[in-house]
């Protein structure tokens, strides 16, 4: 790794920050001005084009609510990207968790929620063990577990969606209102996403989470600094899948059923979001809030295109171009 690999932006950001706060030692500062500028520009142009509809509170609230699952899942993807890998299994974990959550609902929430989370955790541990100890590339490992996760979910439901548990119980009514209730004008699922964000930030401030940046940045140096590299990686994969399974719970609450096809787009969208957020795809760098901002930008773009009446069919074109363009810009900045 040469000096050229290091982001001058981050250097300037770090040096601008003369006041040394504790966070400087733990998580990257979100002083990525370009990202904020991009965000503001998208919001401003969107507001102009949509005659202000974009920024109306009810529209904003809608955007947030519709993307709550992605907000959660991007946190999972963030952890794996920081560790220097990719996680293609996040969507499958989401689907599997949504199915198990609904499928076990007759035993009560006290059973079905932990069951769904445990399933996610199990996938994460498998990913982590294969990446850490068998030393397989994360891309293929999670490609494999993705197939397995979807397939188990489909076997559980027989292929379709699942509305009830074994004995016919459905999700309790009060829970289904979870998505339609606001608190301080912000929908509850978004509060949940923010809560998970806070917990993830806490994890990144624990010793094992803090070391993730070192392991992703330079695993050899991390090992020789006495950091337990395997343990750090394995934990990251487990935590990531656990977070993704929370996304599955949210999904089920939103639609009222479990769906083995849920989240087929999540893996790609979450990778797109972290790359738009400027998280280095080579690992070791990035702020968790920029992943969040990345989702917001994607979500606003979707919304603007809808408001402008851009065909749903053309939206993937815009998304694809933006992913390539942003990564191109970030990669040039680094050189």
């Amino acid at each position: 790794m040469s000096q050229a690999d290091v982001e001058p932006q981050a250097v300037r950001a770090a040096e601008r920050n003369e006041k040394t706060s504790i966070r400087n030692l733990t998580v990257e500062q979100v002083s990525n001005l370009r990202l904020l500028a991009l965000f503001v520009a998208v919001a401003a142009i969107g507001a102009l084009l949509s005659h202000g509809v974009l920024l109306r509170p009810e529209n904003l609230s809608n955007i947030l609510q519709q993307n709550a699952v992605l907000f959660v899942v991007v946190l999972a993807q963030f952890l794996i990207v920081v560790s220097g890998g990719f996680d293609l299994s996040v969507g499958a974990v989401t689907a599997l968790a949504s199915v198990i959550f609904v499928g076990c609902i007759d035993y009560g929430l006290a059973v079905s929620i932990p069951a769904a989370l445990l399933a996610g955790l199990a996938v994460g541990v498998v990913n982590g063990v294969l990446v850490t100890f068998v030393r397989l590339p994360s891309f293929v490992v999670t490609l494999g577990t993705m197939q397995i996760g979807y397939s188990v979910a489909k076997m559980w439901t027989g292929g379709g969606t699942i509305q009830t548990g074994f004995r016919g119980a459905t999700l309790p009514q009060p829970l289904l209102r979870f998505y339609s209730v606001d608190w301080l004008h912000v929908p509850l699922p978004v509060w949940l996403a923010i809560g998970i964000l806070a917990l993830t930030a806490l994890y990144l401030r624990s010793s094992i989470g803090h070391f993730l940046f070192a392991v992703g940045g330079n695993a050899r140096a991390a090992r020789l600094a006495g950091i337990p590299v395997s343990r750090v990686r394995l934990t990251a994969y487990a935590v990531a899948s656990l977070i993704a399974s929370v996304g599955g719970l949210l999904f089920a609450l939103r639609v009222g059923y479990g769906d083995p096809q849920a989240g087929t787009w999540l893996a790609l969208d979450s990778i797109a979001a972290v790359s738009i957020g400027g998280v280095s795809l080579t690992g070791g760098e990035g702020s968790i809030l920029s992943g969040f901002l990345g989702v917001l930008i994607i979500a606003m773009l979707d919304n603007i295109m809808n408001l402008l009446g851009v065909s749903v069919n053309a939206q993937p074109i815009v998304k694809g171009v933006i992913v390539i363009a942003t990564v191109y810009i970030y990669s040039r900045r680094r050189s």
Binding site: M1, Q3, D5, V6, E7, A10, F213, A214, G217, N218, R220, A221, A222, L224, S280, G284, E285
Partner: peptide
């Protein structure tokens, strides 16, 4: 290569 995590 072995001593520092250069991007931190």
């Amino acid at each position: 290569l072995d001593g520092l995590v250069l991007r931190r």
